[in-house]
């Protein structure tokens, strides 16, 4: 019996180590990606904006590992420089909607009543609003560009976090420890920030990390509709839509940025999964019980 227990503990340690290792690995990858995006300018082998029609549409080779586009610009350099726009825009966007959505959701969950009903109806309207109409309208009012694409996406995406935070807050509101804190006379802001937020942060963090990948794709989708960055700025989504018709004649023009999106989305998704495994209290509890 005793021996068996030891084995279980060892297995559990191993398993925990494995989860932690996975988390650290994907975290490192994500950080690497962010570093590439941060130092993009220095990493480019060529000037990503220098056009040279004599070298237009060259297939991948020694001098241009990912080929060149129709203006003769080096694809590798454009993919690298494009990471700045694509990744930071998605990160910033997710950060903003997470914070805004969570705040609204907590307020709704905590106060309930008319405030809740009103804010939830508003979120209904935005959730039900077709993204396409919204995005094009924003582009019409504010013009194209990354910031405006982000505004369009932000406005229709925050309700998701509001709903999540609301239901999590509702669940916490009933719990014993919160009753205790309330009885002890904590103020409402203190209750919300000190007690509820830490307890609901986990699932929200996981959702928002998983959302980074989605947002990279959504931004690319908006670029596809001609709503993305202004020329000559490089951004993965607009690079794909730009080279889309060349899929048969110059496939590298689509595959290079497509591959970049794919890798970035994959890293953030796997990171999200790893964080979930690491933080999921149910899983941890279960292992402790074993």
């Amino acid at each position: 019996m005793n021996k068996e227990k030891k084995v279980t503990i060892r297995r559990q340690k191993l398993r925990n180590n494995h989860i932690r290792g996975k988390l650290l690995f994907f975290l490192a990858l994500a950080v690497l990606l962010l570093m590439i995006a941060a130092f993009a300018e220095r990493l480019c082998p060529y000037d990503p904006y220098a056009q040279n029609l004599l070298e237009a549409q060259q297939p991948p080779g020694i001098s241009h590992p990912l080929g060149t586009d129709r203006y003769g610009r080096d694809m590798l350099s454009r993919v690298i420089i494009g990471s700045t726009a694509s990744i930071y825009a998605a990160l910033l966007l997710v950060a903003i909607i997470t914070v805004a959505g969570t705040a609204v959701g907590m307020v709704c969950g905590w106060f309930g009543g008319k405030v809740d009903a009103l804010l939830m109806r508003i979120s209904d309207i935005f959730l039900a609003f077709p993204g396409l109409v919204f995005a094009l309208a924003v582009a019409g009012v504010l013009g194209g560009g990354v910031q405006n694409a982000m505004i369009a996406l932000g406005v229709i995406s925050w309700p998701k976090f509001a709903r999540l935070a609301r239901s999590l807050t509702l669940a916490q509101k009933e719990s014993d420890y919160l009753m205790a804190a309330r009885l002890a006379g904590s103020s409402t802001p203190k209750l919300l920030i000190r007690h509820i937020l830490p307890n609901i942060a986990g699932p929200i963090l996981v959702t928002s990390v998983l959302d980074i990948g989605t947002m990279i794709m959504e931004l690319a989708g908006l670029s596809f509709l001609g709503l993305g960055v202004k020329p000559p700025m490089a951004e993965w989504g607009s690079m794909i839509s730009d080279g889309r018709v060349m899929l048969q004649t110059a496939p590298w023009m689509v595959l290079a940025p497509g591959g970049a999106i794919f890798i970035a989305v994959m890293i953030f998704n796997l990171l999200g999964d790893a964080i979930r495994d690491y933080m999921d209290p149910k899983q941890r509890n279960r292992e402790q019980c074993e």
Binding site: Y49, A50, Q51, R70, Y71, P231, P232
Partner: peptide, 11 residues
């Protein structure tokens, strides 16, 4: 038209 704009930008 967008292509011309981007090309003229460079020249």
């Amino acid at each position: 038209q967008p292509k011309l704009a981007e090309y003229a930008q460079a020249t």
